[in-house]
C-alpha cells in the first residue's frame, strides 16, 4: 500500500498576496491511522539556488494522539443541531489552525488556515530563489516517513532579467 498526502488549496490559482490567509485541506490516502505516530504541518518559505538552503517557518503544528487531532472524528463533533433542529457545520476557529475536516468523519482529512506574513515575496532570481509551500510530513510508527508539499506564490515579483544599463 503506497501512502500519499494530497494537499489542496481552496482557491485557484495558487497565488496569494502578503498578509492574505491561505486555506485548504490535506488528505491522507491509503494510510492506516493506527500506524501513524505523528503528522507535522508547516507553512514555510525556503531558498533555492547557489547558496545553502535557508527556510523560514510561518506556521508549524504537530498532530498526534496526545493533542487529540489524530483520531477518527466522533459523529456528534461533525455536525451540530441548531435550535431549530437543523444540522449545521461547526464554526471554524480564528487564526492559524489545522483541524480534522468536519465534513469527513474518517479522520484522514484536515483543514488548515494560515495567515501569511508581509514578507518575503516569492522570487525567482539568478542565484537565489524564494519559494513558498505548505508541507505535510507523516511519521509512521515503524519510523518511515511520507512527505508531501504544495507550492504557492506570494506576491507578484516578475522573474529577474539582469539589467545592467
Amino acid at each position: 500500500m503506497i501512502s500519499s498526502i494530497i494537499i489542496q488549496f481552496d482557491r485557484q490559482p495558487h497565488e496569494f498576496q502578503p498578509l492574505e490567509t491561505i486555506t485548504g485541506t490535506f488528505r491522507l490516502v491509503d494510510v492506516d491511522l493506527e500506524e501513524v505516530s505523528q503528522i507535522e504541518f508547516s507553512t514555510l518559505w525556503f531558498t533555492e539556488g547557489k547558496g545553502d538552503e535557508d527556510l523560514g517557518i510561518v506556521f508549524f503544528t504537530e498532530l498526534d494522539r496526545m493533542n487529540g487531532l489524530l483520531r477518527k472524528m466522533p459523529e456528534r463533533a461533525v455536525n451540530e443541531e441548531d435550535a431549530a433542529g437543523r444540522m449545521t457545520v461547526q464554526a471554524q476557529p480564528e487564526g492559524n489552525y489545522v483541524l480534522p475536516n468536519q465534513e469527513e468523519a474518517d479522520g484522514r482529512s484536515f483543514r488548515f488556515s494560515v495567515k501569511l506574513p508581509a514578507s518575503p515575496l516569492s522570487y525567482l532570481g539568478k542565484i537565489l530563489k524564494i519559494h513558498w509551500c505548505v508541507r505535510v510530513r507523516l511519521f509512521r510508527k515503524n519510523g518511515r516517513e511520507v512527505k508531501s508539499e504544495r507550492m504557492f506564490q506570494v506576491g507578484k515579483v516578475p522573474q529577474v532579467q539582469v539589467d545592467l544599463n
Binding site: 498578509l19 523560514g56 510561518v58 506556521f59 503544528t61 492559524n96 506574513p117 508581509a118 518575503p120
Partner: peptide, 26 residues
C-alpha cells in the same frame, strides 16, 4: 522544519503566527 522552529523559538511551535512580526527577513 521542527528543528528550524525550535531554533527560532517556541512562538511558532505554539501556533503563534510569525506574520505578526511586521516584515520578517528584511
Amino acid at each position: 522544519e521542527k528543528t528550524a522552529v525550535l531554533t527560532a523559538g517556541r512562538r511558532v511551535l505554539d501556533g503563534e503566527n510569525v506574520a505578526q512580526w511586521e516584515f520578517p527577513n528584511l
